[in-house]
Design a protein around this nucleic acid. Structure first.
Lengths: 183, 183
DNA sequence: TGCAGCATGTAAATAGTTACATGATTAT
DNA sequence: ATAATCATGTAACTATTTACATGCTGCA
C-alpha cells in the first residue's frame, strides 16, 4: 500500500494539514494517486502513531484551527527506503475501456455521448497540468533539482492526457463511421 | 464498482469458468482491469445469485471438472444498461510516479535501477499486446464489428505502453545527466 | 439567511489483497 | 518424486468508498 508513501512524499515538500494534503492531491498529483479526506485523516493518525510524523495545532484568524503535520526523521528515512525498494506495478482501472470492449452491444450514438463526457474531464485535467507547467516549470534548466523531478511527473501527466485524447479521436472517428442502428 | 461489469463483458464474448476469466483478464484486458481469482470466484457467486449468470458443471478428461458460466438475458441487459450510463473516472495508482516526485531524496543510480526493472515489465506488456494485434487484428478493415471494438482496446494498450516508454527514456536521460552523490 | 470554503472526523459498507487449503492431471 | 498447470474455494485482513456529523468564517 502506498497511500502512506504518497502522504510522506507530499509532506517531504512542506508541512501541511490533512485538508491541505487532500487538496494538493486532488489538484496536482491526483491523476496518479487518489485519496479521500477521510482516508487521509485516518492515515495521518496511523503515520503519527508510527512516529513518522508529528503535528502541531495552528490557530487561524480567518479559518478554523488546523493540525499541521510535518515529517519526522524516521518518516524521511522510511520514505527513502521505500523509494529504492522494488516498485509494485501501476494499477489502472478504466471502466471506459470495458465499455469500448463490448461497444457493439449498444447504439454507437450512446457511446459517442459517453465519450464526449469523458473527454471533457480529460481535457480539463490536461489544461490544469499545462497551466502548472507554464506557471512553475517554464524554464526547466534553471530549476532546482527537486523541481526538475517534479517537472517529470507533470510531464507524465500531460503526455498521458494527450495520448489518451489522440486515441479518443480515433474512437470517435470510428464510431461516427458506423450506421446508427445497433448490430 | 465495475468488476461485475468486467466479468459480464468477458462472458458476453463466450461462456467461461472462473479460472479462464482470471486468465483472460491477466493476459488480455488486464492492463486496464485487474482482479485476483479469489475475487472473481466470489463475484461469480454474487452475479449468479442476482440472476445475471448461470453455470453448468463440465467434466474434463485431462483436467479437473470446472464450472462454466454464461450470461443470462438479464446479465446482458444489465451490461447494456451500464455501458450507456455515466462513466466513472479511470483510477490510476502508480507508485513509481511518487518515487520520481521525490527522487531527489536518493542516489540517482538507485532510481535508475528501479526504472530499469519497471521498464522491463512494461516492455513485456507492450510486446504481448503487439503480438495480439499481429495475430488477430492484422487486417482491421475485414474484422467483424465486435472485433473492431476490441481492436480499439488493444490499440489503447499499445499506445499507452509506448507513451510510457518514451517518458521513461526522458527520465533515464535526466537521471544519467546527474552527478552520482545525492543532494 | 443561505451558500461556499475551511477543517476534522466517525461509522458502516464494500472492495481488494494475502494467506491458507485442497485435489486433479501432465510433463520432467 | 516433484513441479507446473488446471481448478475452486474460505478466512482474515487491509484499503477504499459512501454516508453521516459538526462547526467556523466570509461573502452575496
Amino acid at each position: 500500500m502506498s497511500l502512506k508513501h504518497a502522504i510522506l512524499a507530499t509532506l517531504s515538500r512542506k508541512p501541511q494539514s490533512g485538508y491541505e494534503i487532500a487538496k494538493s492531491i486532488e489538484g496536482g498529483i491526483g491523476f496518479f494517486w487518489k485519496a479521500s479526506h477521510q482516508q487521509i485523516y485516518k492515515e495521518l493518525g496511523t503515520l503519527e502513531a508510527l512516529g513518522y510524523l508529528v503535528h502541531k495545532d495552528v490557530e487561524q484568524d480567518d479559518a478554523p484551527a488546523k493540525k499541521v503535520y510535518r515529517l519526522a526523521k524516521s518518516g524521511l528515512k522510511e520514505l527513502s527506503r521505500w523509494i529504492v525498494e522494488d516498485t509494485s506495478s501501476a494499477l489502472i482501472r478504466d471502466p471506459f475501456l470495458i465499455k469500448i470492449f463490448v461497444g457493439h452491444l449498444v447504439d454507437p450514438k450512446e457511446i459517442l455521448e459517453a465519450l464526449g463526457q469523458y473527454r471533457q474531464k480529460r481535457v480539463a485535467t490536461l489544461e490544469r497540468f499545462e497551466a502548472i507547467q507554464r506557471q512553475y516549470f517554464a524554464k526547466p534548466k534553471d530549476l532546482p533539482l527537486e523541481m526538475k523531478f517534479q517537472n517529470l511527473v507533470v510531464k507524465r501527466g500531460i503526455s498521458h492526457a494527450r495520448n489518451w485524447l489522440e486515441w479518443a479521436d480515433e474512437v470517435e472517428e470510428f464510431l461516427e463511421s458506423l450506421p446508427t442502428p445497433p448490430s
